[in-house]
């Protein structure tokens, strides 16, 4: 059965983002043999986006053009995708599970009178609709969900599908955007880098990270001492920086720093997907957590199911020979 699948492509430099190629791979798989796959690329200037469009191998590309598409707000993206859904009669719309997708997908879904399958890692057609796997309870469980309503909208986790190699688009068309500057109700003012206090986590060979399981800021010295014994830097999960135990520039994860050290030691970190995407490039991962079901153990090479407050001092002692 051929199904029509539409993906959002996001321009970046001369091409599109990596996740755009991943969405295309998912789309070709779901569309069936030779089924039509379309890609929508919102742009303020179609001619400037032509080169990016041409990298979307095999797809029928729709450049949705208009002056209101200069900021990639949820409103802008949703309006462009909605226009493309009408033109392509898509059964399924795939967006990346990124800041862009988070913002645009629910607005689009509301217009299509449906809900979003968010953060999915797999998708397949069922007898009467679509099923998908995602995570619930902050990564503790795999959650299979289904929808019978088409067109369906899904946001796809980064890295869930291997990227389709860049190649020539099957066709590139330009469509005038339905969103005018006058009707637009949200506007990007600026994008800036969050303040950094100069901790070079990304360049460190060893990162020792603290999570909520540390119990409180009074125990963070255990992480600092281990990092010092290993010659590494101190990182943190979002829960720790949100609580103000460590500054925000230490946060590792999708909204913070991405690290790929030789050694990553996760101390009392449960391992929500937002954290894992920030450290999964690490060569060797040691996880210490009291909860044997913590998802971090799925991303670790060696796990210790124990209280960090017992294990960390013992490891620091062993490394420094403090106890002779």
């Amino acid at each position: 059965m051929n199904r029509r699948v539409l993906v959002l492509a996001e321009p970046e430099g001369d091409g599109v983002t990596e996740v755009s190629h991943e969405l295309l791979a998912a789309a070709f798989r779901l569309a069936g043999d030779g089924g039509p796959v379309s890609a929508v690329l919102p742009t303020p200037d179609a001619s400037a986006s032509m080169a990016a469009a041409e990298t979307l191998g095999g797809a029928e590309v729709l450049l949705v053009e208009g002056p209101a598409h200069d900021g990639r707000t949820g409103e802008e993206t949703a309006a462009a995708v909605r226009a493309a859904v009408e033109v392509t009669a898509a059964d399924l719309v795939l967006l990346p599970h990124t800041a862009t997708g988070w913002d645009a997908a629910p607005l689009l879904a509301a217009r299509l009178e449906t809900a979003v399958l968010t953060g999915v890692s797999s998708l397949q057609w069922s007898e009467d609709g679509l099923t998908a796997e995602r995570q619930a309870f902050q990564g503790k469980f795999v959650h299979e969900v289904g929808t019978k309503r088409l067109p369906a909208v899904a946001t796809v986790e980064r890295g869930a599908f291997p990227a389709r190699p860049a190649g020539s688009a099957a066709q590139v068309r330009t469509l005038a955007s339905p969103l005018s500057l006058e009707r637009r109700r949200s506007r990007l003012l600026e994008i800036r880098d969050a303040a950094s206090e100069g901790v070079d986590l990304a360049a460190s060979d060893v990162v020792v990270s603290a999570g909520r399981g540390m119990g409180g800021p009074e125990h963070l010295h255990l992480v600092e001492e281990l990092a010092s014994a290993l010659g590494g830097a101190v990182g943190a999960s979002r829960a720790v920086t949100d609580a103000g135990w460590l500054p925000h520039d230490r946060q590792i994860g999708s909204s913070g720093v991405t690290v790929a050290p030789k050694l990553y030691v996760a101390c009392g970190i449960s391992g929500a997907i937002q954290h894992l995407v920030g450290m999964r490039g690490s060569r060797f991962v040691v996880a210490v957590n009291k909860d044997p079901d913590a998802p971090i153990f799925g991303a670790a090479d060696v796990g210790v199911v124990a209280d960090v407050k017992d294990i960390l001092p013992a490891l620091t002692r062993a490394l420094t020979g403090a106890d002779g």
Partner: peptide, 20 residues
Amino acid sequence: RIRSLRLAKPERAASAEILE
């Protein structure tokens, strides 16, 4: 619009060696 079909513990692709 969305139905919950199944909830399960994730299968570990690469399971860690657990030290005790």
